[in-house]
Design a binder for these strands. Structure first.
Length: 380
DNA sequence: AAATCTCTCAACCGCCGCTGT
DNA sequence: GACAGCGGCGGTTGAGAGATT
């Protein structure tokens, strides 16, 4: 990880040596930090003040926590990010022992990818447009007598000819969205409070990871948020209910007042209308109606066909073109797409998972399993 | 075993806001 | 009010490690 050292204006750049580290530590232990401009000279370091400050803040500080991010930390980062955006230092302030740089790196290398895989835009924390567009396709396809597949903007998908891997992933995302969005408890709460934020959605989603099977049984009653919730202290943002945390952050973190208020006006808040459908987010209107597709037998048929086709792809190690029309015209299957998924995904997860592959989100667990399989065959 | 590719993360850079003069 | 100095922040880079071919 070491960069080649360079020297400019008598100032050293690049990786720090153990000797330099020791000098910096010794000096700060004796004199404390601050006055970064003069510190290197006084400490006998050929470094600029910025470099010293960064080295101390990101690496040498004694209270830095090393090692992997825990579930709770990861969850907190996502929730904080949904409220704060790329305010890494503010996020870091709420995660004891973690630096802004570390969190920023972790976000860019891990969390961002996970969210994308879940079909969530990591910037807005809302469903990705292509997922919503797929919902539109389904909606149109299932409820119109003459299906139309002219959605050229659907990312990565050609006109009328659909990559089954892509579609399967998106369908799975939609399924998991459906599970979250139609939890009666959440709807009740939202109606009482007049709206629900994405934060709550995410929170519920992360709570549901406690029971991944439950998360994928949309036709069965969900365990209520309250029942599922493990009582935790409100003193730590990691343990707060999202709404509480959001309020607390609004009250506590004054420096972010401006960006936060701006963000509040952005469409990264999901609201439910009186019918329990997500609304407000412009494209969600399409999505909410598409959600109704899932109760359709035809949807089951499509889903099963996708899975079968997927197996075919895996076996043949090929990438056949995939025509949605043929799926839509196929005979509805009696088996539920959910049960099919459960049986296949659990095996993959148990066998394939590693510490690194753990997925924080129940919904994405399925996505991940499928993706793994697809990755193996080079389809994704 | 070697070459190539991908991922990670420490460190750098440039900008911005605050403070003092 | 204008300017300079400084600290802090977020985006980006690139070396090295690990994975894959």
């Amino acid at each position: 990880m070491a960069k080649s050292s360079t020297e400019k204006n008598g100032l050293k750049k690049g990786p720090w040596t153990p000797e330099e580290d020791q000098k910096l530590i010794d000096y700060i232990q004796k004199h404390g930090h601050g006055k970064w401009r003069t510190l290197p000279k006084n400490a006998g370091l050929k470094r600029c003040g910025k470099s010293c400050r960064l080295r101390w803040a990101n690496y040498l500080r004694p209270d830095i926590k090393r090692g992997r991010f825990s579930f709770e930390e990861e969850e907190a980062i996502i929730q904080l990010h949904s409220v704060l955006g790329n305010k890494w230092s503010t996020i870091a302030a709420n995660l004891p022992g973690r630096t802004d740089n570390e969190i920023k790196n972790y976000w860019n290398t891990h969390i961002k990818k996970k969210l994308l895989k879940m079909g969530i835009d990591p910037v807005t924390h809302t469903p990705r447009l292509d997922v919503i567009q797929l919902a539109s396709i389904l909606n149109t396809s299932l409820y119109n007598s003459a299906p139309q597949f002219n959605y050229p903007s659907l990312s990565g998908i050609g006109r009328s000819v659909i990559n089954p891997s892509h579609m399967l992933g998106l369908l799975t995302t939609l399924l998991s969205c459906q599970n979250r969005n139609y939890n009666p408890d959440v709807l009740n709460n939202n109606q009482l409070s007049g709206g629900s934020t994405l934060l709550q959605n995410q929170h519920q989603c992360s709570r549901m990871q406690l029971d991944s099977t439950q998360a994928f049984q949309p036709n069965q009653p969900q365990v209520s948020l309250q029942e599922n919730h493990i009582a935790k202290s409100n003193s730590n943002p990691l343990n707060m209910e999202p709404q509480v945390m959001k309020t607390t952050l609004e009250n506590q973190i004054t420096p972010i007042a401006t960006p936060f208020s701006q963000q509040n006006t952005l469409p990264n808040l999901w609201h439910y209308n009186t019918e329990g459908h997500i609304s407000d987010l412009p494209t969600m209107a399409q999505s909410s109606s598409a959600m109704q597709c899932f109760s359709s037998p035809k949807f089951n048929s499509i889903y099963n066909n996708l899975l079968e086709n997927q197996n075919l792809c895996n076996n043949n190690e090929g990438m056949p073109n995939f025509n949605l029309s043929s799926l839509l015209s196929s005979t509805p299957s009696s088996s539920s797409p959910i049960s099919t998924l459960n049986s296949s995904s659990s095996t993959t997860f148990v066998n394939g998972t590693t510490e690194d592959e753990r997925d924080t989100y129940g919904s994405s667990m399925l996505m991940y399993n499928i993706s793994n399989g697809l990755n193996d065959s080079g389809l994704l």
